[in-house]
Design a protein around this nucleic acid. Structure first.
Lengths: 130, 130
DNA sequence: GGTGGAGCTGGAGCAGGCTCCAGGATCCTT
DNA sequence: AAGGATCCTGGAGCCTGCTCCAGCTCCACC
């Protein structure tokens, strides 16, 4: 018997909100989720695994549109693994660039911080001298 | 004579679009810009410096609302330097956390990439063996 | 079998951050 | 003085990525 999970459990385990899970399904980021007799969703282990992938991609800033391309490739089976790899590699490069950009910009912020600090130090100096 | 810059020059030098410059002024991120006789804006060196600060903050993901607080402090003069410093330090910590988060998530993406690579390598192996 | 909590659908609404537009005015060049 | 480029204002619109809502259904438990 394969384990399945209720929407609430899936929210818990995936970190996505209930609305986001439904939204992702609606826009095709997730294949239609199996339903229990009454129409309630039952997520599988596979679904959870896929959600983990989505969380990685979203968490690294991939736009929804690109994730949709990725999901479409995944739906098209094993023949698309090379394409998916290429897409991920491209994304990884984008993330790397973003990290570099952010680190560089942070350097500038830290420079401003240093400037403010030295200004305050100097002000204190003036104050003591009076 | 102090140099001033037209909107077009300022777009060029600041990296913000014309609309964004006007928008920032409208919402109080920039103090009202001096005007030439006919009403056209003339940005000063000081304005450019401030825009550079804004670019740092935006570029490191500070929300507009927080930038507005910062701008308000800046308008209130030298007494607020300590507050501004505190705000920047807090922001720097947030950026550091974001960098860490992104790097961690990137690790997961790279793991997926490795997984795809090994899958492909194995597929090639099977193919050659046939 | 009733009641409260979880889930369903479709569609509207929202927050953030710009971006675009209409309808004029101004400025530079020739 | 004419024409094209640049700029002005106020307000509407847009894009992304959710988030919320109304009105119902379903399920679990007492």
């Amino acid at each position: 018997m394969t384990e399945t999970y209720s929407p609430a459990q899936t929210v818990e385990m995936s970190g996505f909100s209930l609305d986001t899970l439904r939204y992702y399904e609606k826009i095709g980021l997730i294949e239609p989720v199996r339903r229990a007799a009454g129409g309630h969703r039952r997520y599988t282990e596979d679904d959870l695994g896929w959600l983990d992938m989505l969380r990685c991609l979203r968490g690294t800033g991939m736009p929804i549109a690109q994730m949709q391309s990725f999901a479409e490739l995944a739906r098209d089976g094993d023949d698309t693994v090379a394409d998916r790899l290429a897409l991920l590699e491209e994304h990884d490069a984008a993330v790397e660039a973003e990290l570099a950009r952010l680190a560089e910009q942070r350097g500038k912020v830290r420079a401003k911080i240093e400037y403010y600090r030295s200004y305050l130090a100097q002000q204190r100096g003036v104050c003591e001298a009076q």
